[in-house]
């Protein structure tokens, strides 16, 4: 079945509307419920209580959620085109775990207090290491089995690094919460500082924007793309760097939030077809909407971490995809 042209046309406005609705809901829902009127008043400091809640807690959390979602979905989309495999994603391949391990090592070693840049830099280093390992283990155009097995091994290894560092360098009473944060991902207590760390995601997304068309050609074969006039070596290098940086920044502020990079591009591809010129902007917006929605669900369920919610949604979805592929 091909997606209908109508679905393709309305997808962008619908996704934007959906995101806007979720943003309002995310700002309104909590211990103190705020209606749209009070949110408006709070944003302009006409209502001091609402202003405090919004500016101190809910707005930074919303910003981080959106950036994380956009980054992970775009990263997944890029990896799927790169590996020519719709099951590739930062979580399954271990790139997220690499970012988390990098961030945790920096925290454990006590480097983080030196500069705001240390945490994202360490996450990027960890994610790059993981990406390099995936490349070596699973070559380009690798079979699903090889890719997933490489991911399983890396996820286990890097998860062990994260747990080891946290259990040796953190005080025991905060240890469990910390391990859970990095391994399961979360948006609790996110501040403007986290928003600032994640802000380069916007720049990386902007760099990705014009690569949609060459990604179409690459996703049907590297040699074919090269023969049609794509500078494949350069494109691949860019795509890998962008995908890795996007995942690393997301992981640096929210831990490993799984399945976003798998589900969002996949669902969008089913809806509007595989053309990346459409999928790049849609994945950015759709990813933001998906993580904000999962965060809302988690909060409604009494404070479930966002990583748990995405996994609860994503796990069954992934199994369904595997069944479909088989």
């Amino acid at each position: 079945m091909m997606p209908s042209p109508r679905a393709s046309r309305i997808a962008l406005p619908v996704t934007l509307l959906l995101l806007a609705g979720l943003m309002v809901a995310s700002l309104g829902v909590g211990d103190l419920r705020l209606g749209p009127a009070r949110i408006w008043a709070g944003l302009w400091h006409h209502d001091e209580l609402a202003a405090t809640i919004l500016w101190q807690i809910r707005l930074p959390r919303l910003l981080v959620a959106m950036l994380v979602g956009a980054a992970l979905a775009a990263s997944g989309l890029v990896m799927q085109a790169y590996f020519r495999n719709s099951l590739a994603s930062p979580g399954l391949l271990g790139v997220s775990s690499g970012g988390a391990a990098g961030a945790v090592v920096a925290i454990g070693a006590g480097w983080v207090s030196r500069s705001l840049l240390v945490l994202p830099a360490a996450a990027i280093a960890g994610a790059l290491l993981a990406t390099g390992a995936v490349l070596i283990l699973a070559r380009r155009g690798a079979s699903t089995e090889r890719l997933l097995l490489a991911g399983v091994a890396l996820n286990a290894l890097l998860g062990a690094v994260t747990s080891y560092v946290l259990s040796n360098f953190t005080l025991s009473y905060e240890r469990n919460a910390q391990i859970l944060f990095w391994l399961l991902g979360g948006l609790e207590d996110r501040t403007w500082e986290h928003g600032a760390i994640a802000l380069p995601i916007v720049g990386a997304a902007a760099l990705l924007w014009p690569l949609g068309r060459p990604m179409d050609l690459l996703s049907l074969g590297a040699l074919e793309a090269q023969s049609l006039g794509v500078d494949v070596r350069r494109l691949r290098r860019w795509l890998l760097v962008l995908a890795t940086v996007l995942t690393a920044l997301a992981t640096a502020v929210a831990g490993t939030v799984g399945f976003v990079g798998l589900i969002v591009p996949h669902v969008l591809r089913l809806l509007v077809g595989p053309e990346h010129r459409r999928l790049v902007p849609l994945s950015l917006i759709g990813g933001a909407a998906f993580v904000v929605a999962c965060d809302l669900l988690g909060r409604a369920a009494g404070g479930l971490r966002v990583g748990i919610v995405t996994s609860l949604v994503g796990g069954p979805f992934f199994l369904w995809m595997l069944r479909r592929q088989a």
């Binding site: 719709s86 050609l217 595989p274």
Partner: peptide, 15 residues
Amino acid sequence: EFGFSVRSVVAQGRF
């Protein structure tokens, strides 16, 4: 791997 339409694959020749 991906379900591009026949027309869009042929159009890649004009990249």
